[in-house]
Simulated scan of single mutants.
Amino acid sequence: MTIRSLTVPNRVVMSPMTREHSPGGVPGADVAAYYRRRAEGGTGLIITEGVAIDHPSAVDSPDVPRLHGAEALEGWRDVVAGVHAAGGKIIPQLWHVGPLWGAMAEVDPSIAPMRPSGLWGGPGHTYYPSDYVERASRPTAAMTDDDIEAVIAAFARSARHAMEVGFDGIALHGGHGYLLDSFLWAATNTRDDHWGGDVSGRTRFPAAVIDAIRATVGPEVPIFFRFSQHKQQDYAARIADTPDELAVILNALVDAGVDVLDASVRRFDAPAFEGSTRSLAGWAKHLTGAVTMAVGSVGLGTTLQESLSQGQAGALDNIPELLRLLGRSEFDLAGVGRLHLADPSLTRRLRDASPLPEFDKQLHQLRLH
């Protein structure tokens, strides 16, 4: 499949997964080897873990890699070189946590979280502990126009760095309640200025980020955008209650320069709207005509949040359903996360119809393998 300048040999994508194995934000030799193993295993495209953009409150964990600073960029050059040497393709997922600043680690109280309207989100079901939710739920200052312009510029700078170190495209984390998503979500964006209001108004900030990145990387570089209905603040949250609302959001993103819509759900084949069996990725393709990617519990019996409490996810052979939906072009790419941790050669297993690997949190999620 070819998407602008990117050609991939198959439809299997390693989905972004936070690993926190980059001390000081610098990916080392172990991170480079980790990604290279997946390329050697035949995965068509690797999307990295979320990578901090060049902004003070982008990501709170000191062990999440960043995409700025000489040392970090040199580390990424090694990562990219290793993946390319193995015949693979790799793109970084640019990340700003927005309202969720302080969820992963203690933070400097002098650094303000970036929130469209000063709101954390919710109330709703979340896996976060109650003491964090109580603290985070206290309103903070809303982003100013200067804040908004600074973040847009930070995304563009890190996109430029991605091109400098040799990445094959750009991915944006626009889901799960993080910054880009928090502008799309009515519970966190109550603004009545240019950056808020109705559904169309709430798309303007993500679209402005995409537009700035497209202007930076040029016309040939593919841009992926992850979106979701659910949030970490509220599993039942939605950015769109109807397909028509979703069309407004997604077409604005595509018009701004997005090539691939990465529909993040807890189960890839779950119906997105009542009255239809079409998945969220299926609706994205139907409404926009763009390339879409489905992700969520491929080959697994439990969702990510369920596995956090249960440890082992258990294999579930839903690959025939995945192939059926790919075969009828409901979506174009299959994003697989945790099974890529269980076996770097997952794509080879899928190609050969071998038994699925067993994912175990203690063995696979908590260490770099």
Rank of each mutant, 00 (worst) to 15 (best):
A270I: 13
G196S: 09
F205D: 04
N251A: 05
V295C: 03
L287G: 08
T277R: 12
T188K: 06
I223T: 05
F183T: 02
R238H: 14
A272M: 07
A313H: 14
G282N: 05
D211G: 07
G282H: 07
L250W: 00
R266E: 12
H194T: 14
A207R: 06
T302L: 15
P219H: 14
R267H: 13
S200Q: 14
A186G: 01
L180A: 07
R226M: 09
Q305C: 13
A237P: 03
F273M: 06
R267K: 15
F224C: 04
I249K: 01
R226G: 08
G197R: 01
V217Q: 01
T242Y: 09
T190L: 04
T303L: 11
R202S: 00
T302G: 03
S228V: 10
T242Q: 08
R202M: 06
F224P: 01
V265I: 14
V298P: 03
D193A: 10
V199D: 11
G282P: 07
P219R: 15
Q312F: 09
H230S: 14
L280M: 15
W283R: 06
K285V: 05
L246R: 10
D198M: 08
F225N: 00
G282A: 08
W283T: 08
S228K: 03
P222K: 13
I223S: 00
D192L: 02
R267A: 15
G218R: 11
A208T: 09
R204G: 01
I239D: 02
